[in-house]
Design a protein around this nucleic acid. Sequence first.
DNA 1: CGGAAATTTGATCGTTATCAAGCTGAGTGG
DNA 2: CCACTCAGCTTGATAACGATCAAATTTCCG
Lengths: 231, 231
Amino acid sequence: MQPQTARTVSEFRAPNLRSTLPAVGFEAEPDLFAPLGTVVTVRQGGALYAEGDSAHHWYRVRSGVLRTCKLMCDGRRQIDNFLFPGDYFGLEIGAEHSFAAEAVSAATVIRYGRSRLDTATLDDPRLGARLFQIMLGQLDRAHERFMLLGRKTAEERVASFLLEMLERSSAAGSIDLPMSRTDIADYLGLTIETVSRTFSALKQHRVIALPSAHRVAILDHAALEDLSGDA
Amino acid sequence: MQPQTARTVSEFRAPNLRSTLPAVGFEAEPDLFAPLGTVVTVRQGGALYAEGDSAHHWYRVRSGVLRTCKLMCDGRRQIDNFLFPGDYFGLEIGAEHSFAAEAVSAATVIRYGRSRLDTATLDDPRLGARLFQIMLGQLDRAHERFMLLGRKTAEERVASFLLEMLERSSAAGSIDLPMSRTDIADYLGLTIETVSRTFSALKQHRVIALPSAHRVAILDHAALEDLSGDA
DNA sequence: CGGAAATTTGATCGTTATCAAGCTGAGTGG
DNA sequence: CCACTCAGCTTGATAACGATCAAATTTCCG
């Protein structure tokens, strides 16, 4: 539960400041919040914080992949999001985190103090504006996911998932999936069996290839988009 | 598509300024944004804006109930949210609305210019802070809905829905549901038949009573909470 | 009232969950 | 270098929940 290391982020600040958005990766956006942050590392499978922990901080991914998830009392799990380098997370309205954050692969994140946020945004209006953008982006993604979870079929969910991962992983044509089938299932509102079967079916139809369980090659991008159900 | 009337909001400004949150109803929160807004009325079933309309404005509900929804090309629909008096909506990251806003019952809303937002929040930091709160609240609700849509059974969804509507409608013990069964189904990711059958089952078990199709009496609140699947 | 739309109820089907084996591949120790 | 192991993944068989198709009933308005 306790992160292992922490030092000021200034040591790590990105030298070049490209401004293109949406950001892919940590280096894609200048770290406006840098003076506020410290670096924290989490080992694979470790928890950055648990559901119910007090929410004194918020975070940005520096390297690795994390997941945020919620549990029901009987063990059913829903993954809210997979977090890649550059993504912000952990900002919440309540005093306690309403979901857990765990490392899918070994990860480093930058931790910002929530209490310092108010004063900092008053000092520099750009911070407030950028935070605002970030939250609007998160809301937009949330609405896409309502459609996916509420109305899409298993095949459409998996196709949408692969396209989303492809977009995030910058490398075109082939995707590395650091998360387990269980994680994918809990992200898409399906079971591992259904995810696995759908992967197999897509492979059968030559839409994807599976060199290994965690590596997906996109053979027919157009077919995948057709199958995703998005216009 | 075009709203019928528009005049400055100052004529309607709330006289008393209770500060308790979360706000139930329009009067519960002082309208910090009042000087920016104009009042717009929408007739029952009418659209305030459609998916794809350019997003020049954002809104707050003054009276009535609205819904925001998205369509897939084949007609499948997902309702993102039901909007009650006091609720804010329409703030989006893109230049175009990614979902439609329609009146479930005849409604009046206050329309704010998006372009004026930046300058206004600079003038009064309270506005920015409040907007921030509003968006954090929306994100929190979104996470609850991921669990509902991804992992809950039909019965759990309907029970959760009734509890949510009960919370929002301030009147304890009995709820008015202005929306149709189709709307409820598209909100919960179910079909109208399943929603109807689940209502009937809850009635059978004396958890609720249905004086009319759009009026629900809560007979056993504890049972409803058990059935909702929340801890 | 009369007629259309919305809701409820019934019968059946299908997609996805569940239960249950195998399979694969990475790590371990002989 | 090769069994052995164990977790994660795939595949198979069956079941169940909710969808679909269909009809009856109620409600809402003109």
